[in-house]
Design a protein around this nucleic acid. Structure first.
Lengths: 210, 210
DNA sequence: TATGTAACGGTCAATCCTGCTTGTAAATGT
DNA sequence: ACATTTACAAGCAGGATTGACCGTTACATA
C-alpha cells in the first residue's frame, strides 16, 4: 500500500526541524512580539516537541541567534537579486530605500528587529548577538557600495539613516491600525534622496564634512 | 531634634509614589528593555512596596499606559519650547529632525518605544494603548504644522518619516557598541530635508501626488 | 472627636517559562 | 553485525512573575 515510510537521513531530519522552528519563530515574533515569544509557543506552532527543539537549540538565545543569522543570509540574497545589473552607484542609492523596504518590512525583517530589541533584556543573548550584529553592519555597508571607498564614516551615516528609517517605519506599520498608509513615507524618503543627489548633499563620491 | 515628620497630604503622597514609579519604569525600560521590565523590578528601583504600586496601578498595563501618557505630555512641552518663536513653516520643518532627536532619543523616548513595541505581546495593554496612540499621532501632526491644512496625507507621510526615522536611529543608538556615531545620521537627515526644500519636493504648501 | 477613606506594607496562590534529565528509536560508521 | 552517535519524546524541578488579599496607619471631613 503505502510507500515504505523511509525514515529520512539524519541531516534531513535536522534540517527539517530547524527549518520548521525557524518559520514558527519568525511567525510568532512577527505576530506577537518578542516578549510573548516563548519557546513553548514556537515549538507548538512548529509541530515539534519541546525535547526536539531543545536538542537543536539548547537555549532560547541559540534559537534567536540562529533566526538572526538565517534571515540575514536570506536578506543578502534578496538585496543581490534587486541589485543585479545595477552598477551605477547613484542608481543603487536611489533604489536603496525601496529595496530596503521590500526586504526589511517582511515578517522576517520585523522578527529580527524584535530580537535585536529584545536582546537588551537578556545579557546572554546580547553577547551572543554582538559579533553577529557588527558583522551584519559591516557586510551591509560593503554590500551597498554607497560611497567611494575612502569615506567610510559618511557612507555609514547614510546607510544607517536609510536602514533604520525603514526599520522604524516597519515598526509603525505593525503598530498602525491601517498598515497601508506607511508606504507613503517610504516614497517621501526616496524623493528626499533624489533631492539630496541633485543638490550634491549626497555625493556618492565623498561625504566629507558631516 | 527632627522637624515634625509632617505626613504629606494624600494627594502629595499619591503623586510622589506615582512619580517615583514613573521614573523607575523609564529607567528600567531604557536600560533593560521591555521584556526585562517586571513590576517587581520597577517597584524595587522606585523604593516603593509592591502593595503601594498595586494600589496606584492595578495592572502592569495600567502602569505602562501611564508612562506613555506622562512622557507624551512632557514631550509636547519640550517641542513647544523648541518651537517658541519659530513661526516660519519652513524653518520648523528644518529644525524638526534635530528637535525630534533631542526629544525622542532621551531615555523616556526609548522607554515609550519599548512599550509600544512590547504592547504587541499583551492584548490587554494593546487595547488600552490604541486610543492613546492615535491621539498622539493626531496631536503630533497638528502640533508640527508641517503642511498646509489641506494636505493631511502628505504631511502625515513626512511627519511619520521623520519621527520613525529618528525612533529607528534611537534604537540603533542603544544597540550600538559606540553610541556616539549615530548622530551623524541625524545630520544627514537634516541635510536631506534641506535638499528637499530646495528642490521643492518638500513644499510646505502642498504635498499632492505622492 | 469620631468615622470613612485613601495610602501602604507584606504575604499568598496560581501560572508560566526555562532548561535538565531520562528513556527510545533510528541512522551512521567500522 | 555491532557499537556509537544522533534525533526525538516526555516528564520534572527550580525560579520568576503577576495579581489578589489581608491588616495597618494616616489623612479628611462631619
Amino acid at each position: 500500500m503505502a510507500e515504505k515510510p523511509r525514515r529520512r537521513t539524519q541531516a534531513e531530519r535536522s534540517a527539517g526541524t530547524r527549518e520548521a522552528l525557524l518559520s514558527a519563530a519568525i511567525e510568532t515574533l512577527h505576530e506577537h512580539g518578542y516578549a510573548a515569544t516563548s519557546t513553548m509557543l514556537v515549538a507548538e506552532k512548529a509541530g515539534v516537541s519541546r525535547g526536539a527543539m531543545l536538542h537543536q537549540f539548547r537555549t532560547k538565545a541559540d534559537l534567536m541567534t540562529f533566526v538572526v543569522e538565517a534571515v540575514f543570509e536570506e536578506e543578502l540574497e534578496r538585496y543581490a537579486e534587486h541589485l543585479r545589473g545595477m552598477a551605477d552607484p547613484e542608481q543603487r542609492l536611489l533604489a536603496f530605500s525601496e529595496m530596503a523596504w521590500d526586504v526589511l518590512s517582511r515578517p522576517s525583517g520585523v522578527a529580527v528587529l524584535e530580537i535585536l530589541q529584545g536582546s537588551r533584556s537578556d545579557p546572554h543573548l546580547c553577547e551572543k548577538l554582538a559579533p553577529v550584529q557588527t558583522r551584519i553592519e559591516e557586510q551591509a555597508l560593503a554590500f551597498t557600495h554607497l560611497a567611494a571607498p575612502g569615506d567610510t564614516r559618511g557612507a555609514m551615516a547614510v546607510m544607517r539613516l536609510i536602514v533604520w528609517a525603514i526599520r522604524g517605519l516597519s515598526i509603525a506599520q505593525v503598530l498602525a491600525p491601517v498598515p497601508g498608509s506607511v508606504k507613503d513615507s517610504v516614497k517621501v524618503l526616496r524623493r528626499l534622496i533624489e533631492a539630496g543627489l541633485e543638490t550634491g548633499v549626497l555625493s556618492v563620491r565623498s561625504q566629507e564634512d558631516i
